[in-house]
């Protein structure tokens, strides 16, 4: 198993939490994993990117055209990092519409759920529904429950499920 994943959005949208869930899931599955994160000034609302490499890699960054999957919380930030996506790769967008990629209005769904900050988990659930990630829904669900702070656990799991079930309807 070798997979390179890019996760992008604006600082504060929960890119780091998705990176953590997926890294921990990989470790739990016994896979090698290395991920890089954006910290510092860019987190103040700027574009941020995490890269996650599962399998026998040593370096944490992804070269152009090598990401198999991208999770995009903010389409504006995707313009900056879309060159990472491989020709056969797939990008999942948090957007009301898109010609090119599978998309879901995660911000709107999360807001309707009463937790606008959970759009990251809605998008992750949506991506898992397409079965293109190295891990399955139940593995991620278990890890999300395990590492979520207790006061957000229930809402996080609901958001994940919401995104996952959205794909089953479309």
């Amino acid at each position: 198993m070798k997979m390179q994943i890019g996760i992008t959005g604006r600082g504060g949208q929960g890119v780091l939490f998705l990176t953590r869930i997926l890294s921990e899931t990989a470790l739990e599955m016994g896979l090698e994993v290395i991920a890089s994160e954006t910290h510092g000034m860019a987190m103040r609302g700027g574009s941020v990117i995490s890269t996650l490499k599962v399998g026998a890699f040593r370096g944490p960054l992804i070269g152009s055209g090598r990401a198999g999957v991208m999770l995009v919380l903010d389409p504006g930030s995707y313009d900056t990092f879309s060159s990472l996506l491989s020709e056969r790769g797939i990008a999942f967008l948090n957007a009301a519409s898109s010609q090119a990629h599978p998309h879901i209005d995660a911000t709107d769904l999360a807001a309707k759920m009463g937790s606008p900050l959970m759009s990251n988990l809605v998008l992750l659930g949506f991506a898992l529904g397409h079965e293109r990630l190295f891990c399955g829904y139940s593995q991620v669900e278990e890890m999300t429950g395990k590492i979520s702070p207790s006061r957000f656990r229930e809402a996080n799991l609901r958001a994940l499920k919401l995104g996952y079930s959205a794909i089953k309807k479309t």
Binding site: G46, D79, T80
Partner: peptide, 15 residues
């Protein structure tokens, strides 16, 4: 030669 990215990254702002 690789094409340069289409968009500029969002600049950071005060919260």
């Amino acid at each position: 030669k690789r094409p340069s990215p289409a968009g500029k990254p969002r600049r950071p702002t005060l919260c």
